[in-house]
């Protein structure tokens, strides 16, 4: 499904009740089945933007449209994969993954076959009866991804999903994500701090300025998949994105001094 973000503005109140502008008049479109990353300095508001698209937060102004229809709240067409997994500690892996289908009152046999498919997809066979606290961070995130995929979302929203993982686990999960997205079943928005990750996964990268966030630049990644991290063009694109992010930091410093 295509996402149309129209003139989104959002501010929060801090403890002294001052208004802090987080997002200012942001507009962009994401095409059906496109993979788009949001990159920018930490605290710039890209996660806030993702939460607005998910429907967890309401924008002060502007709207988010999915295939031309304005969203009114969270929905199972747009599923989020959180950085800190957000699994249910009292549910086994199987039950965590099956939860969404069970809530929708699906037929038991259907739930069983879908969950088996999802567990297979993320490679968690044999861990169905484990509880989240028994799993490593990477495996917890696999559960969270399976929990989303099992419901066949049209849009997958990922908020720094691999940020808390070690670099080997991160690379493996990135590869698996590429494989899953390759089937062209959903549109993906990824918030990340990792420029290499953004270039490795995305079709397009939106680079945000520091808060109030605005779109600084858009980088199109025109490399065929699977991509090689050592490819000169890959490194060039990564440096370009990095440079853009660092520049927004520099501007910030100049503004402060």
């Amino acid at each position: 499904m295509a996402i149309n973000v129209r003139n989104i503005t959002k501010s929060f109140r801090n403890e002294e009740m001052e208004r802090l502008s987080i997002l200012r008049n942001i507009s962009f479109q994401i095409e059906n089945q496109e993979f788009v990353s949001f990159v920018g300095p930490s605290g710039c508001g890209k996660s806030t933007l993702l939460r607005i698209i998910a429907g967890f937060l309401k924008a002060d102004e502007g709207a988010v449209e999915i295939d031309g229809k304005e969203i009114e709240g969270p929905g199972k067409d747009r599923l989020m994969v959180f950085q800190d997994y957000v699994l249910f500690p009292w549910k086994s892996v199987w039950n965590n993954i099956a939860l969404g289908l069970k809530l929708g009152k699906n037929d038991k046999e259907y739930v069983k076959s879908r969950v088996a498919w999802a567990i297979d997809m993320v490679g968690l066979n044999g861990f169905e009866k484990s509880y989240p606290h028994q799993l490593s961070g990477g495996m917890k995130q696999r559960v969270a991804i399976a929990r989303a995929l099992v419901m066949e979302p049209k849009i997958l929203l990922m908020d720094e999903p691999f940020g808390a993982l070690d670099s080997f686990t991160r690379m493996r999960l990135q590869d698996e994500l590429v494989r899953m997205c390759d089937k062209k079943e959903f549109t993906t928005c990824l918030v990340t701090h990792d420029c290499e990750e953004a270039v490795y996964l995305s079709d397009r990268i939106l680079v945000f300025t520091d808060s109030p966030a605005q779109i600084r630049d858009v980088v199109c990644v025109d490399l065929p998949r699977p991509r090689k991290r050592t490819d000169p063009r890959f490194i060039q694109l990564k440096d370009e994105v990095q440079e853009l992010v660092m520049e927004t930091w520099k501007n910030e410093k100049e503004r402060l001094s």
């Binding site: 998910a54 429907g55 199972k76 989020m80 957000v86 249910f88 009292w90 809530l103 419901m151």
Partner: peptide
């Protein structure tokens, strides 16, 4: 944990399901 509410809401759980799957346990 408030993010568990987010997870349930995005899966379109109703009020009773939130109580049963999240609050009670």
């Amino acid at each position: 944990d408030r993010s568990l509410y987010d997870a349930l809401h995005m899966m379109e759980a109703n009020g009773w399901q939130v109580v049963y799957h999240c609050i009670v346990p």
